[in-house]
Computed example of a mutant assay.
Amino acid sequence: MIVGIHGIRCYRYLARAGTVELAGRALADEWAAALGLPLDPGAFHAAYYAQLLHLGTTMGTDEAEHLPPGAQRLLVEWVSALGAPAEVTMGPGTLPVRQAAGWLAERFGTAAQRFAAQFCREVDTYVSDPASQRRAAVRDEVHRVLAERRPRVVVAHSLGSVVAYEALWHRPFALDLLVTLGSPLGMPHVVFDRLALGEGNEAHKGLRPPKVARWVNIADVGDMVAVPRDLPGRFPGIDEHHEVTLGLVASHKATRYLARPEVAGILGPMLSAP
């Protein structure tokens, strides 16, 4: 059994499917198909939590200047971590936000602006308050799925890697393998400094979660979310790290990561093992 933990922009599955259960099933089926491995029916399940972070925003609110203050600060910090010059990230009022969005568009293309706004909104909703009910509810949903499905493997993408890492510290669960894809876990200020591992665990930040036997991380060389790309530099608990090339247009898509032969090579033996 494999459990997948998704990242941002997954509320659309619920909008299409109508129920959380069907949304999770649709996402799991999509991820399983992308893997291209022989899987028994029901062998891939999703811990679906998008509805717990959805703020009810409507179309036209994905411009950087329409983000809430916390998400705007996160955007500026993220762009700084990506290497933007100081003049882009400094200035009065909303100037740094506009400049940060412009810098992203210039470097990664105009589609990156909308993606960045969505990323900052959802990530800020999760990380802004270590004691928030939304954050706890997301982790609780992951714990519920793990307890129900008893997987050997967890595959976590993007923000899902942050959720998985925190959940596995708050309530350890025995896993043979944790695979993180396009992870922002090490992003300074934006994520790393805001991780909340639970009482007594803060000194263990960067270590492999307890009861996880092996941790593999995969990052695309052009993924603007996987910052820093060399995640083991901040997380010595990672046992194996791979850098891949997905192509700039789809350098953060979960299905593109899952289709990589490196992922099949890691997960294939787990499926055939007793």
Rank of each mutant, 00 (worst) to 15 (best):
G237Q: 12
G237L: 14
I238L: 09
I238F: 12
I238A: 12
D239Q: 04
D239T: 08
D239A: 06
D239F: 08
D239N: 13
E240W: 08
E240Q: 15
E240N: 08
E240Y: 11
H241F: 15
H241I: 05
H242A: 01
H242W: 11
H242P: 00
E243V: 15
E243K: 01
E243G: 08
E243C: 06
E243T: 14
E243I: 12
E243D: 13
E243N: 07
T245D: 14
T245Y: 12
T245L: 09
T245G: 07
T245H: 10
T245E: 13
T245R: 14
T245S: 15
L246W: 02
L246E: 00
L246G: 00
G247H: 08
G247T: 11
G247A: 06
G247L: 03
G247R: 04
G247P: 10
G247Q: 09
L248V: 10
L248R: 15
L248W: 04
L248S: 12
V249D: 11
V249Q: 11
V249F: 06
V249P: 00
V249N: 05
V249E: 14
V249H: 10
A250E: 03
A250Q: 04
A250I: 06
A250N: 08
S251P: 03
S251R: 08
S251E: 00
S251D: 02
H252C: 01
H252D: 03
H252E: 02
H252L: 01
H252N: 05
H252G: 03
H252A: 02
K253H: 13
K253G: 09
K253E: 14
K253P: 04
K253R: 15
A254N: 11
A254S: 09
A254L: 10
T255F: 02
T255K: 00
T255G: 01
T255N: 12
T255A: 09
R256Q: 14
R256N: 11
R256D: 11
R256E: 15
R256H: 15
Y257W: 09
Y257K: 10
Y257P: 13
Y257N: 13
Y257D: 13
Y257G: 08
L258E: 04
L258G: 03
L258D: 01
L258K: 02
L258M: 08
L258T: 12
L258I: 07
A259H: 09
A259I: 08
A259D: 13
A259K: 08
R260H: 15
R260V: 01
R260N: 15
P261E: 05
P261F: 02
P261Q: 09
P261Y: 03
P261G: 06
E262F: 00
E262P: 00
E262Q: 13
V263C: 03
V263I: 14
V263P: 02
V263L: 14
V263A: 01
V263E: 06
A264W: 05
A264K: 14
A264D: 04
A264G: 15
A264C: 03
G265T: 07
G265H: 03
G265R: 13
G265P: 06
I266Q: 09
I266S: 06
I266Y: 10
L267W: 06
L267Q: 04
L267G: 09
L267R: 02
L267H: 04
L267P: 05
L267F: 05
L267I: 12
L267Y: 06
G268C: 03
G268S: 15
G268K: 06
G268D: 07
G268V: 07
P269V: 06
P269C: 11
P269I: 09
P269M: 09
P269D: 10
P269N: 12
M270G: 02
M270T: 01
M270D: 00
